[in-house]
Amino acid sequence: MNLNLILQLALSGFLLGGVYSLIALGLSLIFGVMRVINFAHGEMMVWGMYVAYTILLWTGVDPFFSFLVSAIILFILGYLLQRSVVNRILDFPEAMQVLPLVGMAMVFENSARLIWGPDYISPQSKFALSSISLGPLTIDTPRLMAFSIAILITVLVLVFLKKTDMGKSIRAAADNRLGAFLVGTDVNKVYAVCFGIGTACVGSAGGLLVPIMPLSPYIGAPFTLISFIIVILGGMGSLTGAMVGGFIIGVAESIGPEVITNIFHGLGVDLEFPHTMKQVVSFFILIVILILRPQGLFGGKKR
């Protein structure tokens, strides 16, 4: 087994895991407060990617700055989506909550296809090919940038929830909807803002991913699934869980194929585990965690 390669893969997976954490934070925040799962999460991320890409195309501004615009636009989209659809399904049985958001996922995915076309695009940004050497390891600059900004945003969101009035209202509404309502909180507005923050998280993550991976309208669904896996792994509604889960999945997806191929070879089986099957690793983790510990690593008691 090539230890250097594994370390290299683990490092780049860890950096990507920072962005995964941010994506999952958005999903977890929405779930924690509204008990609704945003099945359109990945598709909304793709919108964030395309917004940053369009700005790069028109003005040449790097996605590492324009992700802010992605965040703002996705906040507005999320706010409107909550007001128009999600707010009406809060009291529906779980089954019926899944379907409208699956419908919205279709809307986001295919409208992105209509607007930006079906092909894969890899935009060239300034940092795209630069890297830093660290002993035997190399770090892609765009990955490092994306990682740092994602962590920064995550921290800011957590501080916002802890310190500001709006953040406190969000946490109050999450704890006890009726109680928050009785003390005069505008619960509907708080929910809409919270949904907006969740989608802004995923929108900015989308912007940060533009320099790292090719974009197409259809890459959303896998990200929706990845963020579910992370959130379930960490524990539904647990923000710490979402962060830790992001790193675990980032690293596991990155080193998984190489490690499994090595295990195959070690067992004398001549099989490759291709990198394009890396999601199988995450799905496997999901199945194991669903069976052994459905409340997740940082989740409280099973509901």
């Binding site: 659809v85 009406r88 399904i89 529906f92 019926m96 379907l99 409208p100 699956v102 419908g103 919205m104 996922a105 279709m106 809307v107 986001f108 995915e109 295919n110 409208s111 296809r113 209509l114 079906p118 309208p217």
Partner: peptide, 19 residues
């Protein structure tokens, strides 16, 4: 030339039916 538009409509339909 609007490939995928029918899926957008589908999506909205799914939302509307459930609501």
């Amino acid at each position: 030339g609007y490939e995928g538009l029918h899926l957008v409509i589908y999506g909205f339909l799914l939302v509307a039916v459930v609501l």
